[in-house]
Amino acid sequence: MKLVGIVGTNAKMSTNRQLLQYMQQHFADQVTIEIAEITDLPAFNEPEDRVAPAAVQALSDQIKAADGVIFATPEYDHSIPAALKSAIEWLSYTTRPLINKPVMIVGASNGALGTSRAQAHLRQILEAPELKALVMPNVEYLLGHSLQAFDDQGNLTDHDKVAELADDVTAFLAFVTLTEKITPENKFMEKNQQFSWSQIADGRD
């Protein structure tokens, strides 16, 4: 099985990146996780031709080729960073690779709350009709005090948080398998791949 882990920030130093790198190594025998960055994506600006810029197309292709997606989001001002929102807007406005894609949300923050509010926002965002991702219910992996959470080798030091993450990943892998069975192949994908917010009013989507 192959997953894409999206680092939800354009910051150079990010414990969310560290968290994905840890997951990539720690669960290597269960699943292949490719890490995707959003740093090089341009700021979203509704393109008249609806064509995705090359960097967005590359991210989109990577998502399409994967069995599932993990979003690792920081929390900026009680929500997800503008950079991550911008990436999602690109995907929703151009290629829409997240339709029916199983998604797991994780997040790391330096504060105690571990991105709880950003994750709640992200969940709502991914469930918007323009995106239609299948966000795994019940699981909320919050890593607080993340600057102290890793040792020099990039390993999580708290055993409870390691065990919790292992449970969540196992559950997500089962969820991915399950969704393959229940979603009729390409049910939504056949429809118009492109989307505009004005279409909501027309009831086209």
Binding site: Y76, D77, S79, A82, E89, I125, L126, A128
Partner: peptide, 18 residues
């Protein structure tokens, strides 16, 4: 409302202003 939330452009200026 874009994707059930505020547009990234609006979020961006608020991040700069915080």
């Amino acid at each position: 409302e874009h994707n059930h939330s505020v547009p990234s452009a609006l979020k961006s200026i608020i991040e700069w202003l915080s």
